[in-house]
Design a binder for these strands. Structure first.
Lengths: 232, 232
DNA sequence: AATTGCTTGTGACTCTGGTCACGTCAATTT
DNA sequence: AAATTGACGTGACCAGAGTCACAAGCAATT
């Protein structure tokens, strides 16, 4: 499906690009829809495109040698993934899977790469984003260091809350990941995540609101649990 | 201490740079020695330099909210760290500590940044390196997914063996990390690492040779354990 | 030679998180 | 409407990792 320059400019990565550049990129972009559980980016192959998420939620997933799934990161709308292809020719190290029905824009690797190489401002932006990814992975890895598992879950939930919402007292997570998807992010079992959620729900800190919406009733308490100032 | 262009060209990142560029960078570089356990790069501050390791071993270390140490990556001689400063102005997310007496070259951030921005070949190289870092972190994170802890230790040891040595039947790790340093990389206790090493030593798979040298006697067996084809 | 400090080695106990085996519930398909 | 599927909920059991405590070994320093 055809993509307009306007659509491209909705992404934070591409927004700062001059109109002219976006018009050059648009013909190499295509819109696709992926159902829940579908593979969006495959591991082990040299992907020739970068994936921008428009709607839904994606998850980067690796596999251990014994076949277990390992959750690496979540991708929120407006963000992107598969950007390693812009830097080298090595295969993608992880799968990216839609954890909720997703609308994505695929942008061909080479044209974007050209734009990046010819404009220092663009390579700045892409470089900053990659640096941001490293910070995000570091933060996620640090979560795993917590010995208290409920604390891990609270920390993960807190990471899932968008920055703008963190100021106020309550918030919501749309299209929240399943317990299983959270479990592999935190290296714990699905059942253990369920029990942590039970504890949070019985204390009226979070509440499910239908399938695609998780309401954070008491964000302050969640933050305290995430920081270990109080235990579940 | 003053640094020559020749010294700079010993690093894989800088090696491909034209002689002229290296001469321009050399005045902004300085050589420093760090004792074991010393902090080489501090977390939370905006570092104005990138750190190249010449000799010894470094470890990126994060801290959980409750004060535990989290091992993020090892830096081998020839490699570098603190490179996020080249991409944005945010503070360094993690500490980098010398796990063995180390000789490092600090290269001022801004001159290197200039070189990077003005030469697409240089930004290519830096970008590739950052992408490599992401792959490395992904691989490390995947290790944590293994439920068998001895397997994790074997996998970590295997990662520590330099690529060139992986072809042959035996190898060695110079300046190996302590059990504690391995433990925080794998999210396990120091004692558990010791027990894993005991198992490996009693089977004549590895052997300590003095303080700064770990000999891998039977690399094939180590590989089999790392892959889970056999259990300790 | 003695001291200090760090690393490694080891046993015993505890306890928690994984696993298994269910059941429940809601949404979707047939 | 029935059947299927996938997510969530829950109890029981237990292997195994963490923790604590202490000893031994080794290196560097006094």
């Amino acid at each position: 499906m055809q993509v307009t320059p306007e659509l491209l400019s909705r992404f934070t990565l591409l927004k700062p690009l001059p109109r002219q550049v976006l018009e050059g990129l648009a013909p190499h972009a295509s819109l696709a829809r992926h159902a829940r559980r579908e593979v969006v980016v495959r591991a082990g192959v040299r992907e020739d495109r970068v994936c921008f998420l428009f709607e839904g939620r994606l998850q980067g997933v690796g596999h251990t040698i014994d076949g277990r799934e390992v959750g690496l990161y979540f991708v929120e709308p407006g963000d992107f993934c598969g950007e390693l292809a812009l830097f080298d020719d090595n295969p993608q190290p992880e799968f990216v899977i839609a954890t909720a029905a997703a609308a994505v824009v695929f942008l061909a690797r080479n044209p974007l790469r050209e734009v990046m190489l010819n404009s220092s401002s663009v390579s700045n932006i892409v470089g900053r984003k990659l640096a941001e990814r490293v910070r995000q992975m570091t933060e996620q890895r640090t979560l795993l260091g917590l010995s208290n598992i409920d604390q891990r879950v609270c920390g993960q939930l807190y990471l899932l809350i968008k920055g703008e919402q963190r100021q106020v007292e309550s918030g919501e997570i749309v299209n929240p990941p399943t317990h299983q998807e959270i479990a592999i992010m935190l290296n714990i079992s699905r059942e253990r995540v369920t029990r942590a959620f039970q504890a949070l729900q019985s204390r009226r800190i979070v509440r499910r609101d239908g399938p695609g919406r998780l309401v954070i009733i008491d964000l302050n308490s969640l933050r305290r649990f995430a920081r270990g100032e109080e235990e579940l």
